[in-house]
Design a protein around this nucleic acid. Sequence first.
DNA 1: TGTTGTTACAGGGAAAACCCTATGTGTAGA
DNA 2: TCTACACATAGGGTTTTCCCTGTAACAACA
Lengths: 217, 217
Amino acid sequence: MSNTKSKNVVIVDDHLLFAGSLEQLIDTFDGYHVLYHAKNGKDLILQLKAVDQCPDIVLLDINMPVMNGVETMEWLTANYPEIKVLALSMEDEETTILKMLMNGAKGYLLKDIHPEKLKEALDETIEKGYYHSEKVSATLLRSLQPNVPSIEDSFKENELIFMKLACSEMTYKEIAGKMNLSPKTIDGYRQELFNRLEIKNRVGLVIYALKNNLVSI
Amino acid sequence: MSNTKSKNVVIVDDHLLFAGSLEQLIDTFDGYHVLYHAKNGKDLILQLKAVDQCPDIVLLDINMPVMNGVETMEWLTANYPEIKVLALSMEDEETTILKMLMNGAKGYLLKDIHPEKLKEALDETIEKGYYHSEKVSATLLRSLQPNVPSIEDSFKENELIFMKLACSEMTYKEIAGKMNLSPKTIDGYRQELFNRLEIKNRVGLVIYALKNNLVSI
DNA sequence: TGTTGTTACAGGGAAAACCCTATGTGTAGA
DNA sequence: TCTACACATAGGGTTTTCCCTGTAACAACA
C-alpha cells in the first residue's frame, strides 16, 4: 500500500456468519482493519454516531431487512459523503446496481468473487476512488446501452394493460368494460398476442406474463 | 476438544467470497482445518474423488446452481455416509430444512448465526453427532407438529396432478387423456376445486397454485 | 390524392370452459 | 345387511374462449 496508516473498514450485512468471516479475512489483509460490523442500515447509523473512529470504506450488503442497501446508501451520501462505499450483493440485479451507483456507491462487488479479489477491490477503491468487478461491469455496460430494450417495450400500452387484467379472474367482457373498449377489440388484442407469443390459450398468456415479470401475483 | 488430531472441514458454497472468508474463520478455530472448498455439488464430488484426505464435516450451502444442497445431500448419504454434513442456508425454509434432515444432514445452520456459534456447531456435530440452531429448532418443531399440515396435504393426489397440468396450456380433454380419466371426471375435479378454493376460472386456479407453490413455472 | 398502416370494432361459428344434477361401483362402518 | 361415503362418470345446458375474416376511421406520407 502507498498509504502509511491502515484503513478502517466497516461491514454491513445481516448474515452474522458472513460478516464475521469477512472480518477475519479482511484483518489478514495488509493495510486494512475492520472497525466493527453492523447488521443493517439502522445499526450502522447508530454505530457511526457512537464510535469515534470513522471508517474509510463501508462494505454494504444490498439485501437486508430493516434498512436495506439502497436506503442506507442514500443516507450515507447525505451524511458521510467522504466514506467510500463498496456495495455487496448476491446476485447482479441490474436495477439495484444502478440505484446503488447512482446513489454514490464507489463500486459493486458480487459475493461470488474470489477472496483475493476483495483485497484488490479495497486497494482500487482507496487509490482510484472506484472499483467494478468484471461481471458487474458487463451488466452495467449492457444496461447503459441504449438499444437493449426491456421486454415491456415490445408491447403497446393497451396490450400491457390487457395482459395484466387477463392475469386475473376477469372475463374478457369484464376486461373490456374496465378498459372502456368493445369486447371485440379486446378479442383483437387477445388474438394478436396469442399469435405473436405463440401461445394456445389464456393460461399460456398468464405463464408468459409471469415468466417475463410483466405482472406479479 | 476431546479429540487429539484436528478435524477436516470442507465448505460447499457458490459464493467464493463467503466460502473463502469462512475458511479463514474456521482455520482460526482450535481443532479444525479447512481442506478445500467447492462451488457446488458437482465440484464437491470431483474433489472428494480427487483429494486423498476425507473430510470429517462438510458445510453444505442449500441454494447453489448446478447441483443444489438437497441433491448433494442425497449423493453424500449414498456415497459417503460417514461424513457429517451441516447444512447452511440464508433463510429458514421449512420444507428445505426437512428435506436436508431427512436426507441425513446432521444439522442446519442459518447464515445469520454469530461466528462464534459456528465453533459450537462444529464441536457439537463432532461430539454428539448433531446440531441445531435455536431458530431452526423452532421451525423444525413447528413443522413436526402433526396439526400444521402442509398446504399440499389439503389436496388429494389426483387433485394435485390435475392442478399441475391445469397450469399448462393443455385443454381439459388433453389433461384427461394424460391422466387416463374421462373428461367428465376431470370436469368433476375442476368443479370441486373451483368451489373449495372459491375461484371463478382457470386463471384463478393457476394463480392459486403459484401463490401456494404447488406448481412452478 | 391515393397508399399504407394502425386501431377499434363486428359477424359468425366452433371449441372449450363452466355449471348443475344424477348414477353406478366399491368400500368401510354401524 | 343397511348406510354412508368417496370416486369416476354422464347428460345436457349456458357462457366464454378462441378463431377467421372484413370494415370504418384516422393519421402519415409520398
